[in-house]
Design a protein around this nucleic acid. Sequence first.
DNA 1: ACGCAACTGGGTCAGATGACCCACTCCATC
DNA 2: GATGGAGTGGGTCATCTGACCCAGTTGCGT
Lengths: 225, 225
Amino acid sequence: MARMPVAERRSILLSAAFAVISRQGVSGATTRAIVDEAGMKLASFHYAFESREELLAQLVDVVVGNQEVVLALPAEAGTDLERLLELGLLRYFEQVRENPLRERAMFELTQYSMRTPSMQGFAERQYARYRELAVASLREAADRTGCSWRVPLPELAADLVALTDGITLAWLADGDDGRARRTIAFAARALASEGVHPPAAAPTDSTSRTTLTGTTPTTRRGEAS
Amino acid sequence: MARMPVAERRSILLSAAFAVISRQGVSGATTRAIVDEAGMKLASFHYAFESREELLAQLVDVVVGNQEVVLALPAEAGTDLERLLELGLLRYFEQVRENPLRERAMFELTQYSMRTPSMQGFAERQYARYRELAVASLREAADRTGCSWRVPLPELAADLVALTDGITLAWLADGDDGRARRTIAFAARALASEGVHPPAAAPTDSTSRTTLTGTTPTTRRGEAS
DNA sequence: ACGCAACTGGGTCAGATGACCCACTCCATC
DNA sequence: GATGGAGTGGGTCATCTGACCCAGTTGCGT
């Protein structure tokens, strides 16, 4: 109803589309359903976007850009690496629990793009982004606990992404909180066992294992193997 | 064209529907697309099934029943637990690689059922089935290597399912074989570290850890973590 | 051979859907 | 306060879709 710049209208439509998709799936996100969700008239849709497909393509872009969590590390200093990872995963899980529809919509969009020729590459980009975020989180977790990783970080990031995906999917399917939390404990254990423990023991390498104040020591390691 | 009993017609239509879904998604599996795939006329569809929805429901049942692999243990006796698990996961992965469309269709059906009220419970049953299969595979893997599990088997099965799901999903998204194999190695390591090693060492418990011929010792343990 | 019920073909129908159109109405600017 | 274009409303149109129908055919048991 109200007059508004195209940009804002587009953005509202994108949000509305995401909302509809999370409830009805991509195929349920018809132009009419979307404008209805947005409280607009059908004509406004084609004023803002060339076509439904164009909106979907843009939505996919926005969504990849906005993706933020794979592992949500808590602010407080955790005790050891495993516990820190577990807390991070639990926090991620809480986000999923709070907003399951969001996750469903993400899976929905991924699958849609996987079988839409013109969107080839989106799924790839999405997972690249997930791993990128995972790398950052894992690096931070190691830094904070003064650990370092035995395997290349990007590789471990892929493991983390696989675990969170699997945990999320299973939880969306059966909603079993307890199981999800137990799997998270397993995931934390598994990931932490790829880390080298911090206690001021024998420095395994020639590098002079400096302070462990939590900021500087980048803990880059094992880029081979 | 040919005359055939309803049962066979139904089964052909179900296969055709699965094929269409793997290519076009559930929403692309219109009655027309399905009968086209099956080489039938539209009327035959409604002769065999009440409605499209009924076909979809039956498909979902069939598919859950046919589900077979989560971990495909090789026939030859593996060396140690980790290696055996890795080989099993690699074999599973080969199956996925050979038939990616099948996996896509499975995810598609899962998501469809998750947001279809009348099919609530399918996703749940599907994951229950996965875990059931995983339990069997893990038990066999332990038996074969004379190991036992430190955590309850059903719990470990959930971990395995999460891992295979995550690995499969990531591979479907980016098709990176190397990464999938590296994540599989990680998964094998992680799972194996929940097993108790076989070598004739000190029996940790009072139970008289009997033979390890690979059949009888059920290796049930830790039902209480 | 014959009857009849299982099965098929080629249609119809109503509703949904994406795309699009054009007369109208605001509002900012001059 | 005139005016031009950004934005809106209420349609239309072709196509797709699920459901359904009914006159015909064909194979099987008798």
